[in-house]
Each structure stands twice: as structure tokens, then as C-alpha cells.
Design a protein around this nucleic acid. Structure first.
Length: 654
DNA sequence: CTAGGGTTAG
């Protein structure tokens, strides 16, 4: 229009502005605003009103409020929109102020105004305020319509208010809203969130017609209850029936898989989704990325990153946080930091993602830097932030800093230490060899220590060969987790390292009587875009002969360099020679050597292990990194080890 | 020729 020499008037501008609001294109909308100011058209009540609603829709409350003051016509519609806008932003004070101000100016809020407030509070997670609005709406003599009901139910579910939820359900049946699709989905969701799987399924079965929304809510509900197979069955049945699944259906089932250890399935579903012609959105990516991180499938993670770049969502808080997490999980701490730095704004989730990334890589200094920066920029930390911070201090042996932050938690931040914080402290002191101090922290805890806390003590006892405290921790763990093999293994490790073979046998007998077996060690490595799995002592692995050959040549080189195998890590009472042989079969060593054989010289290797890395393997991989000139990353259940030039970033301290 | 509210996925 402009290039054709036509000048927009007060009639066309509102349509343009409406389009900007619909597409959420803030920049263009602001340009149109500028144009209307220059041309004087902004004085037109229609133009002003549409600009105002544009800013509300784009969550630009400051601009909206400014405009609001200059508007000629301020009716109940605009007052309500402004109040709801503040509610959507989580600005409870301003939302309530504007909302009640509406009344005092002689405008009576109507049903739509009330509903807008409930929905707005929901969006910003102010569930209590949403429920309060619902109650007050009733007290003010309003009758609920379908929108009020479907808006309040998610809030009730998130708060876990089963009684209120059941009451609303009764109201729905009584007033004949039971045919409303949105309400049915919302009811299924509410019962799911309140932990009532039976009631949830009942609502689903009683519904009149097939509705995709209800199915999606059911899939999410099953997933929430850990009923993964049921969720997948519902999904597959819909597929078989030829139902056109939408982006929510796909995202729900992908989230279900990546949250329940079905990572490969999640990746496959993502591919299938694209083949089905359904476009992922900014919710799909954060659901998919954890699956990439869990199995360190870096190539898939990068592909998802590219997707988010193409969709221009890579800098959104949830997408960005999920990217940080994925890269950290894949060993790419620098890439994680890049994603963090590119984001224009950080919320608590982003800061915690970055803190967690540094903690996982044992980078305490960087974690502390992030923590200080976070506070400088006005973001208050929460309990999760402190878990990462303390864990980072513990990994790096920064006991002084760890103590400092542990004490500042409740003193300066009003956050009471939880079990996980105590576990960090115990492990921090324990690793540093201060086992008695760690034990006294446990004894002084204001609540019952859990398995994580005792586990931290037992691991430390293993590290420092402390039998007496190890026995105390182990006996607690045998009560709390009688069926977890790892605890028995740790205790017998301690006995074995002291040559107490009778005790080793005793523990082994207990395990045998309980029918428990040592979890087999298992490592993964990605070579040429394919993930390979190696089991400890895996005799059937195709290249095993070559791997063992290379390994024995390496160990000859190591012995020349003065290395002696650390046979502490062998549980059996066998000859030294045999012990060395057992150590050779550890899966992380096998995976590293497999990587050496199948990648070009000098390229880095990334290995993931299902258990903690063994001390002997740690020493061997350090040697390999120097001798072969390779950077080697090993992620165990606890953290990343980054081997380079014969050293590890953990400083042999884990 | 302009303007307000709903479910299910993080």
C-alpha cells in the first residue's frame, strides 16, 4: 500500500494492528504505532483502542498502561483487558488494583471480565489467585459459564484441591455443562493432577463423543501417573483409528517417553511426527531435548536446536533452558553457556539450568559466578539453585565456600535446607576426608535423613576406606533400600580394599539370599552418529578381540610409565593377575578403546556410564588421554569427567 | 472498516 503511494487512514490501521497482535510481532506493531503518532492518526479512538489491545496481547504492559491514560474511550472492555493483562504477567497487585478500580469508576465488570482474570492468573501460575477470583465471582452474584469452569479447573488441579474439584464436577453435571469439550478435558486433567487415575478414566469413558482434547488430557494423565504403556496405547489406538493427531497429542506422548526412560522412542516419535506433517512448536522442543541429553545423542540435540533456530524460538526461556540442559548433558558445557548468553532475558528456570550445567561438570568457580550474577540481576534463588551450587562446591572440594552458602541459605534467603542440601554437605565433607564431621551433620539434621544422605556418607567411606562408619551408613541403607544392589557393592568394596574377604563373602551371601545381583556396568559411545552399547566383560561384542588387544598394549605402555593397576576395585579374592583381567573388562574402558579404534586420530570421545566411574578406569583413561592425544569425556551417574593431557577436570576428586 | 474470556504438551 505504502509503496503504491497510498496513505493509510484511521480505518485501515486497526486492521494492520490487529494482524500484528495476532502474529505477536511486537517490532512491526511498534512501527505502526510510530507511524500513527507521526501522522496524527493515533488520536483516532479506534486506532488507540486497537494499539492498546495489541500491547496487552503482546504482554507489553508498560506501553499498554501508558496508552491507556491517553485513550478517549475507556469502557469496561478496556479496563478488564488491562487487569487481565497484569494477571497474565503475574503482577497480582496491579491486576487486582485495576480490576477493583474498574468498579469504583462506575464500570461493572461482567462475566467476561471475571473469566479473563481467572485465565490470566492461570497463565502466570498464580493458581491461588485464580481460585480466589472464581470464589469472589460467585460471591458477587455472577453465574459461572462454561469458560469460568474450564478456566478454574487447571488451577484447582495444580493446587491439588480434590474436594473443590469434585464440587465443581458436581456443578458441571447439575448444570448440564457435561457436553462441553473443554470442560471434559479440564476435568480429566484436574483428576489426573489430583492423583485420581480411576476418576480420571471414568470421566473419559463417560464422555459423549470422541474429542482429541480429552484424549490428549488422558495421555498426559497416564503419563503423570507413570502409566507409560497406557499412555502409549491410547496414542497408538488413535493413530490406528486414523484420527488426525495434533501438535499437543504428539508433544504429550514425546514428553511421556522422555520423562520415563524411553529416550530412543521419544526421538523416533519426533521423526514420525514430522513425517505425519505436524509442525513442532515451542512446547515440543523442551519436551524432546531431555531425551537427547539423557542418552547424550548430540546429533539429535543439535538437530532440535536447528529446528528452534528456524522457528525463531531458540531464545525463549523454556527452549533456551532445555538447550542448556541438553548441551551440558552431552558434555558441551561451552555450547550450553553460549545458549545462555544469547538469551535476551533469564528467568529462574534459565539460571538454574546454567547452575546445574556447571555443577554437573564440576565447575564450582563458574557456578559461583553465575550465582552472584543472578543475584545482581535481581533474580532470587530457590532451593534448586542451592542444590546445584552446593553440589558444584562438593564436586570441586570447595568446602569453605560450600559451608558459606549452606549457612546463607536460611539466614540470607529464607530457604530452609532440604534433604538434598544435606546430602551435598555430607558428600562435600566426606570427599574431603572429614567423615566424622559429615556424620555429625547427619546426626544434627532437623528431620530424618533419607537414602541419598546415607548414600553420600557410604560413598565417602568407600573413598577413604573407612569401615566403621561405612557399616553404620550401610546398615541404614539396607533398611531404607533393601533391594538396591549398589549399597551392598559399596560396602563389600570397603571390605575388599582392606582384604576382609570373610566380610566380603558375608555381604555376597546376603545379596544372594535376597536374589540381588550387581547391576551390570554399561557404557555408551556415539560413533559416526550411531550409539554403541558396551557391557562389562562383553564377550559377544563384535570388535572385542581388537579392543582387548589394544587395551593390553596400552597397559604395557602404562606399566613402562610407572602405573600399577588399582585392584581395590575388584571384589573377588583372586590372584593379582586375575584382578587386572577383571578390571580390563570394565565397560567404560571398553567403550573408550572402542572409540579409539573407530574414530580418526585426535578426535574427542564421549562416553556415558550407567554407574559411577571406577577408580582404576579413571587412572587408565587419564593415561590414554595423554598417550593417545585425545580429549575424553565420561559422564557417570554423578557428573562429567573431562580428561585431557593426562589430567581430569575433577582433579581426581569425586 | 476497531476492542475482552476456555481444555490438553514444558
Amino acid at each position: 500500500m505504502l509503496t503504491n503511494g497510498l496513505y493509510p487512514d484511521a480505518h485501515v490501521l486497526p486492521s494492520v494492528i490487529k494482524a500484528c497482535a495476532g502474529l505477536l510481532v511486537v517490532k512491526i506493531g511498534k512501527q505502526v504505532h510510530g507511524f500513527s503518532l507521526v501522522s496524527g492518526l493515533s488520536l483516532d479512538p479506534f486506532v488507540g483502542s486497537s494499539l492498546f489491545h495489541f500491547y496487552i496481547k503482546c504482554d507489553e504492559l508498560v506501553s499498554a498502561h501508558k496508552l491507556f491514560g491517553n485513550m478517549v474511550e475507556r469502557d469496561v472492555v478496556s479496563w478488564s483487558a488491562l487487569a487481565a493483562g497484569y494477571a497474565r504477567k503475574g503482577d497480582v497487585v496491579n491486576a487486582k488494583k485495576v480490576f477493583s478500580g474498574t468498579e469504583s469508576l462506575g464500570f461493572e465488570p461482567n462475566t467476561v471480565s471475571w473469566n479473563g482474570m481467572i485465565a490470566g492468573f492461570n497463565r502466570s501460575g498464580c493458581f491461588m489467585d485464580a481460585v480466589l477470583m472464581f470464589q469472589q465471582m460467585h460471591l458477587h452474584g455472577f453465574t459461572f459459564d462454561g469458560t469460568s469452569i474450564s478456566s478454574v479447573l487447571p488451577a484447582i488441579g495444580d493446587l491439588g484441591y480434590l474436594n473443590s474439584g469434585t464440587q465443581v464436577h458436581g456443578y458441571v453435571i447439575k448444570t448440564g455443562f457435561a457436553d462441553d469439550k473443554c470442560i471434559i478435558s479440564a476435568l480429566i486433567d484436574m483428576y489426573g493432577k489430583c492423583g485420581c487415575a480411576l476418576e480420571m478414566s471414568k470421566v473419559f469413558e463417560d464422555r459423549g463423543q470422541v474429542d482429541l482434547g480429552a484424549c490428549n488430557a488422558l495421555i498426559a494423565g497416564f503419563s503423570r501417573h507413570g502409566l507409560v504403556d497406557k499412555a502409549l496405547t491410547v496414542f497408538k489406538e488413535l493413530q490406528d483409528q486414523g484420527v488426525e493427531l495434533n501438535v499437543v497429542s504428539w508433544t504429550s506422548v514425546i514428553a511421556c517417553c522422555s520423562q520415563h526412560g524411553k529416550d530412543v522412542e521419544a526421538l523416533d516419535l519426533f521423526r514420525e511426527m514430522q513425517a505425519a506433517g505436524v509442525k513442532p512448536n515451542s512446547m515440543t522442543i523442551p519436551c524432546l531435548l531431555p531425551a537427547c541429553g539423557n542418552i547424550a545423542a548430540l546429533m539429535h540435540g543439535k538437530a532440535a536446536h536447528c529446528f528452534s533456530l528456524k522457528m525463531a524460538i531458540s531464545n525463549e526461556v523454556y527452549v533456551g533452558s532445555a538447550l542448556i540442559d541438553m548441551y551440558a548433558n552431552c558434555g558441551k558445557i561451552q555450547a550450553a553457556r553460549c545458549c545462555f548468553d544469547r538469551m535476551p532475558a533469564h528467568n529462574l528456570v534459565c539460571w538454574n539450568a546454567m547452575l546445574g550445567a556447571y555443577a554437573m561438570h564440576g565447575r564450582a568457580k563458574e557456578a559461583i559466578e553465575i550465582f552472584l550474577w543472578m543475584q545482581r540481576s535481581g533474580q532470587k534463588p530457590d532451593a534448586v539453585s542451592f542444590t546445584s551450587l552446593l553440589s558444584a562446591c562438593s564436586q570441586s572440594g570447595l568446602t569453605k565456600e560450600g559451608h558459606h552458602y549452606f549457612e546463607s541459605m536460611s539466614r540470607d534467603h529464607g530457604i530452609e535446607a532440604r534433604l538434598e542440601h544435606y546430602a551435598c554437605m555430607v558428600s562435600m565433607l566426606g570427599r574431603a576426608g572429614k567423615l566424622e564431621e559429615a556424620y555429625s551433620i547427619i546426626k544434627k539434621m532437623p528431620f530424618e535423613p533419607d537414602a541419598c544422605v546415607w548414600g553420600a556418607l557410604l560413598s565417602s567411606c568407600r573413598l577413604h576406606h573407612n569401615m566403621s562408619l561405612g557399616e553404620v551408613a550401610a546398615s541404614k541403607l539396607f533398611e531404607l533400600e533393601p533391594r538396591k544392589p549398589g549399597n551392598y557393592i559399596l560396602l563389600s568394596n570397603i571390605y575388599a580394599s582392606r582384604g576382609k574377604w570373610k566380610e566380603v563373602d558375608k555381604v555376597r551371601d546376603i545379596m544372594r539370599n535376597k536374589g540381588l545381583r550387581k547391576n551390570p556396568g554399561c557404557s555408551w559411545i556415539e560413533v559416526k552418529n550411531k550409539v554403541h552399547m558396551l557391557l562389562a566383560g562383553d564377550k559377544l561384542f563384535p570388535q572385542m578381540a581388537q579392543i582387548l588387544d589394544r587395551l593390553s598394549r596400552l597397559s604395557m605402555e602404562m606399566k613402562k610409565a610407572g602405573y600399577s593397576p588399582n585392584t581395590d576395585y575388584v571384589l573377588q579374592d583372586v590372584e593379582e593377575q586375575e584382578k587386572e583381567h577383571i578390571l580390563c573388562g570394565h565397560s567404560e574402558k571398553l567403550a573408550v578403546v572402542f572409540g579409539l579404534l573407530n574414530t580418526s586420530q585426535g578426535s574427542p570421545l564421549r562416553v556415558i556410564k550407567n554407574l559411577r566411574i571406577c577408580g582404576d578406569c579413571h587412572a587408565v583413561i587419564k593415561f590414554i588421554s595423554k598417550f593417545e592425544g585425545r580429549e575424553i569425556l565420561v559422564r557417570d551417574t554423578n557428573r562429567y569427567h573431562h580428561f585431557k593431557d593426562g589430567h581430569c577436570t575433577c582433579g581426581d576428586y569425586w
